[in-house]
């Protein structure tokens, strides 16, 4: 298995006591597999995604990706882990407005000095070609539509060939048609890149485009009932 999550728990201290968000959550996935996680707001979907993205630490349990336990790493190693193993697509594209499309895709590569820059640039161009933006390489985010910006973000998430591709409401800010196109693109690239792909969404339509869906209930993943949210 490439992704193994066991007994994962996350809670926050509050004035009125401890707030448990994730409770003994288990998950196992292999490369090429994908999962849509649905659930109501505040159910802990995004928290799970942030822990899987090594952006947040669990209160309990373990998480291993390609046999590596990220939370045992020091801060620099953890950053490197995130850089090389994980790709993120956010609901807000979080593109750097001062950078061009191509540059935005290459931003993660700057975190590591020991990379083959020409090769990565070529890969960035390829990825942008694959997301249909080969003609917009020098454009700034402000000159792109919402769908185009999200496609740039998708290309950026894949630039370093991550093992795990995480998407947090990737179509949440898009209209239906664009959302569908972006979802298809994500899935296609996921298949091409053979990543483990987890998407957190409220969108039933997007969830259904993935072969597997789970619902976050009481801090645990449960089989999705297929009902809308």
């Amino acid at each position: 298995m490439s992704l193994v999550v066991q007994n994962l728990g996350k809670s926050y201290p509050t004035r009125s006591g401890e707030l448990v968000v994730l409770r003994d959550l288990d998950l196992e996935m292999n490369p090429g597999e994908s999962l849509a996680i649905l659930g109501p707001s505040g159910s802990g979907k995004s928290t799970l995604l942030q822990i899987l993205g090594a952006l947040d630490r669990p209160t309990s349990g373990t998480f291993r990706l390609r046999d590596q336990e990220p939370f045992s790493l020091d801060d620099d190693a953890l950053a490197r882990f995130r850089n090389r193993r994980i790709g993120f697509v956010f609901q807000d594209h979080h593109l750097l407005p001062q950078c061009s499309v191509l540059e935005n895709v290459l931003i993660p590569t700057l975190a590591d000095d020991n990379v083959d820059r020409p090769a990565l640039e070529a890969r960035a161009r390829t990825l942008l070609d694959r997301v249909g933006l080969s003609q917009r390489l020098d454009h700034r985010p402000a000159e792109l539509s919402g769908g185009e910006r999200q496609r740039v973000a998708i290309a950026r998430s894949l630039i370093l060939q991550p093992a795990l591709l995480l998407a947090d409401e990737p179509t949440g800010n898009l209209d239906r048609k664009t959302a569908h196109a972006v979802a298809e693109l994500l899935l296609e690239l996921h298949r091409q890149e053979q990543t483990i792909f987890i998407v957190v969404t409220h969108s039933v339509e997007l969830a259904r485009m993935l072969p597997k869906q789970s619902e976050m209930i009481d801090g645990k993943l449960a089989a999705w009932s297929g009902a809308g949210l």
């Binding site: 952006l55 950053a79 490197r80 994980i86 993120f88 750097l96 931003i107 975190a111």
Partner: peptide, 14 residues
């Protein structure tokens, strides 16, 4: 912007 850099693997030092 800083959050994105950190999320994409930039170390706080970088």
């Amino acid at each position: 912007e800083i959050g994105l850099l950190l999320a994409t693997g930039w170390t706080p030092g970088a």
